[in-house]
Amino acid sequence: MQHTSTQDTLVGLFVASGIVGLFFLALQVSNLSSFVEQDSYTIIASFENSGGLKVKSPVSAAGVKIGQVSAINFDPKTYQSVVKMSIYSQYNTLPDDTTASIFTAGLLGEQYVNLDPGGSDEYFKNNGKIEITQSAIILEKAIGQFLFKSAEEKK
């Protein structure tokens, strides 16, 4: 049996390094830093088709992430997809004629909402509604249309 104080030190070292490991995983490896709820406000956009958009998908403007999708619902009256987005409060100067479109990062990457600010002087308030939207581009549809067109031209 080793001297007890050496043993204590080693056990302490072991526990400390284990906890450091857990912290490393939490802070360095995962998105805990962005997991902390930031102050945000909600804006809503209705799309004809929201494609593969998911809750927590990023919302970006000019390529910078400014928020994330918080809910996606189907509206039984208009048959559209209603996407709620929480935008971080520090970006509270979005004009209320901003347009929203769903893009894909890369050819096969995940989908995200892109906001294009307009020129209005009025800013979005909480639960503001985006009027002009552009749906997700469904790759199969686009390819189908392309093939159809080229077949038509050959006639």
Partner: peptide
């Protein structure tokens, strides 16, 4: 010990 060891394993692996 087990969760600490697993966390260390993942950390060192990464």
């Amino acid at each position: 010990s087990m969760p600490l060891l697993a966390a260390l394993f993942s950390t060192v692996g990464i």
